[in-house]
C-alpha cells in the first residue's frame, strides 16, 4: 500500500468518506474556538452538561418525525436553548450559582430524553442519538454543519471583544458597558449550536469531545490568545482527519475514533507541551539568572 492509498485513497475513492471528512473539518472549525473559550472560562464541564441537555429535544423530534435531520437539529436546538435560558434565569433570580442551575436542568433534560426514547423509540435509536454516525453524513447534513461553523466564526469575529472580556473580567464588562448578559448569552447560544452540529456526526455524548480535547491540548502549547485559537483548530482538524483514517483502515466506529485521536493529541500535549508539559518537569532544566 502506497502512502497515497493510505492517506488520500479512502477519500478519493468513496464519496461518503469525502462528506464525512468535510463535515469533520467544518465541525472542527466551529467547535475548537468555542471549546477554547469554555476552557478559559473554567466552564469545561458545562459543555458536557449542555451536550446532554439537547437529548430530549432530539428525542421528541425523532419520535415525531423519524430520522429527519432538520427535525433532530431543531429539536436539539430548542431543548438546548431552553436549558440555557432557564438556568440563566435561575442564576440571575436566585442565589444558585450557574453551575448548580445548569446541573439541575441538564439532569432533568437528560432523564426526560432517555425516558422518551425508551418508551417510544428503541435502543438502536438511542444509540444513534447518543453516538451519531459521521459516515452517514449526507449533503443536507453537511450544509447544516458548515452553516453552523460559518455562523460561529462570524459571531466570534463580531462579538470577539465582549466574549473575551466577559471570560477574563466579567465585572469590568458589566460596569463599563452593561453588556455582560448579552455577551454571555451569545456565547451559550454558540455552544448549543455547535453541539447540535456535532451530534449529527458524533452523537450527543461525543460531540463535546471535539470541543474540549483540542482546546485543553492547545492550552499546553500556546500562550497568546491568537496562538491558542490557532492551535486548538489545528488539533481539531487533525483529530477529524486521522480519526476518519483510523476508522476506515481498522474498521472502527468513526465517532469514538475521532475523539480518541483527539485524546491521543491531548496525552501527547500533556507529555511534551511547551507550556507545562510533564517532560520539562522531568528534564529539570537549570533555572535562569533572574
Amino acid at each position: 500500500m502506497t502512502l497515497y492509498d493510505f492517506f488520500i485513497g479512502p477519500f478519493a475513492e468513496f464519496s461518503f468518506m469525502r462528506l464525512a471528512l468535510a463535515g469533520c473539518l467544518a465541525l472542527a472549525l466551529g467547535c475548537a474556538p468555542i471549546g477554547l473559550l469554555l476552557v478559559l472560562r473554567r466552564m469545561s464541564l458545562m459543555g458536557d452538561a449542555m451536550s446532554h441537555a439537547i437529548l430530549p429535544g432530539a428525542a421528541i423530534a425523532f419520535i415525531a418525525y423519524g430520522l429527519s435531520l432538520t427535525a433532530l437539529s431543531i429539536g436539539g436546538l430548542v431543548a438546548g436553548l431552553a436549558v440555557v435560558l432557564l438556568s440563566g434565569l435561575v442564576t440571575r433570580l436566585t442565589q444558585l450559582k450557574e453551575d448548580a442551575s445548569f446541573a439541575a436542568f441538564y439532569l432533568l433534560s437528560l432523564a426526560s430524553g432517555v425516558l422518551l426514547v425508551s418508551k417510544w423509540g428503541s435502543n438502536v435509536d438511542l444509540m444513534h442519538i447518543l453516538f451519531g454516525t459521521v459516515l452517514a453524513v449526507d449533503p443536507p447534513a453537511l450544509m447544516l454543519v458548515a452553516g453552523i461553523a460559518t455562523v460561529t466564526l462570524l459571531a466570534l469575529a463580531i462579538f470577539y471583544r465582549p466574549l473575551v472580556v466577559e471570560s477574563f473580567d466579567p465585572e469590568f464588562l458589566r460596569v463599563a458597558s452593561g453588556g455582560g448578559a448579552v455577551g454571555h448569552f451569545v456565547f451559550l447560544v454558540l455552544v448549543v449550536l455547535n453541539l447540535v452540529a456535532g451530534f449529527q456526526a458524533l452523537g450527543t455524548l461525543m460531540a463535546v469531545g471535539l470541543m474540549m480535547l483540542p482546546a485543553t491540548s492547545a492550552r499546553l502549547w500556546a500562550q497568546s490568545l491568537a496562538g491558542l485559537f490557532a492551535t486548538a483548530i489545528v488539533f481539531a482538524l487533525a483529530a477529524g482527519y486521522f480519526g476518519l483514517l483510523a476508522s476506515y483502515h481498522a474498521n472502527l466506529p468513526s465517532g469514538p475514533s475521532i475523539i480518541l485521536v483527539a485524546g491521543l493529541g491531548y496525552l501527547l500535549s500533556l507529555a511534551f507541551g511547551r507550556q507545562g508539559g510533564l517532560v520539562w518537569r522531568v528534564l529539570k532544566l537549570k533555572h535562569l539568572e533572574a
Binding site: 478559559l40 471570560s167 473580567d169 458597558s177 453588556g179 497568546s224
Partner: peptide, 27 residues
Amino acid sequence: QANIERGFPVSVLDVVLLGASGRAGWF
C-alpha cells in the same frame, strides 16, 4: 478582589487597553 482570571492568556498592554473599550465600543 477583582474577579479576574489571572491565568488568562492576555498581555499587560491588553488589560490596560480595556480602559479604552468604552470609547472603542464593542466592535
